[in-house]
């Protein structure tokens, strides 16, 4: 849709005088598509309107959080954080190995470049929960499955980010090291990573942030953390417990969010 809008814009730029305004055409096309989708998905927004008062009643059930099982929750939150941390570290290790191979200007061979790019793409494309589901089936319930899933998925992201940053580094920096006889590893180590150290930390923090969020739902498929507890609370209609768990998750995530944005600001 955006593509066609763009070409319309280009066409408009070529005309003289007042260009034809194609905006209404595109808008109505988009609206028709969206309407078709709502029909196809069988979504009826009027039920939503009727349901507003019900929704009010429903959400009021969350009003009295029940913190009586707080020690269990805290333990599970810690497990969630540990899962996210382990996942991030593994992802970091994998991506630090793969990224230089996937950077066009550093990669020892175009074939290696293509292969490692494809590998990163594949890792990124698999949703982490799907991977967690698979690994739970493979190695059993528990946070280890979650860690593996998180690290595979986010190594794909980190590897791509790092590779792109490494590609943006000025070619002279690499040449300088190669000129004094540095090998591939030495070029990567002493020209590549130091040139992108800011992005490196920024992306890693972003991924850590993201992994904490993701780890909090891994429990839904039995891959450890607080998610299972939340699922059970809702399945048993214990909205007071669910509310307590959600408050805890939100607090942790907001704290981590502020911490990482503080660290990022300090770096710049």
């Amino acid at each position: 849709m955006v593509k066609s809008m763009l070409s319309a814009n280009h066409a408009m730029a070529g005309l003289e005088g007042r260009p034809r305004n194609l905006f209404p055409v595109w808008l109505s096309l988009i609206l028709i598509v969206l309407w078709r989708i709502t029909v196809d998905l069988d979504i009826d927004f009027s039920t939503l309107a009727y349901g507003v008062s019900d929704m009010g009643e429903y959400f009021s059930r969350y009003r009295t959080p029940d913190f009586s099982r707080i020690s269990t929750y805290l333990e599970l939150i810690l497990q969630t954080l540990a899962t996210a941390f382990w996942g991030t570290v593994f992802a970091l290790i994998v991506s630090v190995v793969l990224a230089p191979l996937a950077a066009r200007n550093l990669s020892p061979h175009p074939l290696i470049y293509r292969l490692s790019r494809e590998m990163l793409n594949f890792m990124r494309a698999m949703p982490d929960l799907l991977l967690a589901l698979l690994f739970v089936a493979a190695i059993g319930l528990g946070p280890l499955a979650g860690i593996i899933a998180l690290s595979i998925h986010t190594a794909g992201f980190l590897g791509k980010f790092f590779a792109e940053s490494l590609e943006r580094v000025d070619g002279g920096v690499y040449e300088a090291l190669e000129a004094v006889g540095a090998g591939f590893l030495q070029t990567v180590m002493f020209a590549g990573w130091p040139s992108i150290n800011r992005e490196f930390v920024g992306y890693t923090l972003y991924i850590m942030d993201r992994n904490v969020r993701a780890a909090s739902v891994l429990g839904l498929v039995g891959a450890g953390g607080i998610g299972l507890e939340l699922n059970e609370a809702l399945a048993l209609f214990r909205y007071d417990r669910a509310s307590a768990i959600m408050i805890l998750i939100i607090t942790v995530i907001i704290v981590i969010d502020h911490l990482s944005s503080y660290l990022r600001k300090k770096l710049n």
Binding site: M55, L230, A242, I253
Partner: peptide, 21 residues
Amino acid sequence: RALPELVWALVFVSAVGLGPL
């Protein structure tokens, strides 16, 4: 932004029932 989509999906499923909505 704080909670993942899946948590909200859990909440909304128990509010409006199963399905894409």
